[in-house]
Amino acid sequence: MMNEKRKKLTKLAVAAMLAAAALAMSFFETTLTAGLPLPPGVKPGFSNIAVLFACASLGLPSALSVAAVKAGFTLLTAGPTASLLSLCGGLLSVLAMYFLLQIKHRRLSYAGVSALSAVAHNLGQLAAASALVGSALYLSWLPVLLLSGVGFGLLTGVILNAVMPALAKLKLFR
């Protein structure tokens, strides 16, 4: 048993850790994919693992703040445009996760949730990019981004599925 205040504090601390982990993972990701000939807009999105974990164990507000911290970090490293894209993608992806995790008798594991939220992330980014440029040109890119979202989303979800037992053993909230 722990009182409400401690619970809140723990939540905040874990959310901050997850945000840090998300930043670390996206940094790790950029160094990992630097040499790969990936099409523009296509990336693994490992930080999705942290966001999804936040959404599943801490709830919607914490997951949103992790996404916001990520967008803020992008503002510093890649400029306002990229940051706006990251924010739109992150927002939509967290909402998708939250919605999917709310479903009772959910048959999807984290892999499925992750894949669908990655697709939502890409859709959000694409919509923002199209709105910024003022043309629907980027829509032709949609199939590619759907494909990469599903692929990498499944991958990161499987990773979360794999590490979840270990994370549960940590008994973060007990």
């Binding site: 594991s109 499925g112 759907l146 979202g149 599925n161």
Partner: peptide, 23 residues
């Protein structure tokens, strides 16, 4: 959670892929 992938995951992925193909 011990299972890495469930059938439903793959079905969801297949649905999105089909949508991508259609698009």
């Amino acid at each position: 959670l011990k299972r890495f992938l469930r059938p439903a995951d793959l079905i969801a992925a297949a649905a999105v892929l089909a949508a991508a193909g259609l698009l």
